[in-house]
Design a protein around this nucleic acid. Structure first.
Lengths: 227, 227
DNA sequence: CAAGCATTTAACTTATAGTTAATTATTTAA
DNA sequence: TTAAATAATTAACTATAAGTTAAATGCTTG
């Protein structure tokens, strides 16, 4: 009986390691893919190059990702998750009555966007480019599609919930929360893109993006904060 | 002598017709390309299908457009031109002192975006997706690249000029005109994209986009108009 | 009618996504 | 220690699409 139980624990441990290794492999592929997709763009990225970058063979990639599209889309998930969890923190703070003014709330929301951008600017760009490929989304496997659009919808929802709570608390003016949350997302998405359009090179862009976001924040505060 | 002159005029007329026909051919290709690119997206669009849609053969396309990328990018030009000329009209009106309030000016700017969107929503979307393909731009022929980026820069400039003039006239508050014009472009670009993200289907989107834009307009007016 | 032009046809080359089967290496369980 | 299972690699393959080419066709002009 003892032996049987030890055995079982051993197998358990092995399964854990295997799953860990599998995860590492997937992470390795994702990291390589992100690097190549970001530097070359979707169209000019080849699976062979990703395999080379990840130091594995091409069929191995296909063992973990059905298609190029699916690999590309998978880069979105961790990013959307980070957005969501950061929003959740703001939501918690808001529900605990930690925001004295709407200004503070808006400041935190903008800080969230900037942090996400700073934390992973390449992911951010990949995310932005992803949304242009509407046609890709529909081609994904059911699984991948529902995972991504689910996370995306969740992020939208939680952002809207934050706005609604803020309105209920009288922190910001009574405005259509759907539209307002779309506007805030839109400002951020649009601004990062405008920046990318204007300067082919990077570098000084980040600083300018941040100062422009600060102005956008100020304008938004002027427009929506309840005095 | 008479005969020689008539001859010359005749040749001239023929050259004109030829150039007109050439232009028609190009327009036909562009129209077909726009249709296919918009319905299928860049990746899944084939040159054979564009040729079929335009009712010409594939090599003929390559007579007018070096590559698929260049054809894709060329769809941008008329769009950027329309933007520019609409902005020029606003600029003229502004310089003639036709705007009594900043609110009227902002309203016209938003109307401009909505008109461009209504007039050619597919171009608008193509334009949006175009800017994600940073990698495409660098691959274009010198000619195509400078034409597009030139027009794009011009549009940015004229928008900024309008804002500066409005500030000088005391219609809107004294705000960094570069940043403010980026924010306005960003709102529009971002919002159309957020809309595209949220609804895979179209239809009701347009109405919702317009009402959201109206809210954005109101917020912007509240934030930047000088009272 | 002959010369010049744009267009088409039909083939081709090249690149890449995606797949497969045989082989090799590694790990596990007895 | 060894047989079985697992995972990866190799090296091929298919299919599709971009881009090219040359010869043939037809239309316009002089």
């Amino acid at each position: 009986m003892h032996k049987g139980r030890r055995m079982h624990r051993h197998q358990q441990a092995i399964r854990e390691r295997k799953s860990r290794e599998k995860d590492q492999r997937i992470q390795g592929i994702l990291a390589a893919a992100k690097k190549v997709f970001f530097s070359k763009g979707y169209v000019r990225t080849t699976m062979d190059e990703i395999a080379f970058e990840a130091q594995i063979s091409k069929p191995t990639i296909y063992q973990y990702f059905k298609t190029k599209d699916e690999l590309y889309s998978s880069l979105m998930l961790p990013f959307l998750e980070e957005f969501g969890s950061r929003f959740e923190r703001i939501e918690k703070k808001l529900k605990n009555g930690k925001y004295a003014t709407g200004r503070d709330l808006v400041k935190d929301i903008f800080r969230l966007f900037i942090r996400c951008y700073e934390h992973a600017p390449d992911s951010m760009r990949v995310a932005n480019t992803f949304f242009q490929h509407q046609d890709l989304i529909s081609q994904l496997s059911q699984e991948a599609r529902s995972a991504i659009s689910g996370k995306g919808k969740y992020d939208f929802q939680i952002a809207r919930g934050v706005i609604e709570t803020a309105i209920a608390q009288g922190l910001i003016k009574d405005i259509d929360s759907y539209a307002l949350s779309d506007i805030i997302w839109g400002i951020f998405l649009g601004l990062t893109q405008v920046m990318d359009m204007k300067s082919t090179k990077q570098g000084s862009t980040d600083k300018y993006l941040k100062s422009t976001l600060r102005l956008a924040e100020r304008l938004l505060v002027d427009a929506i904060v309840q005095e």
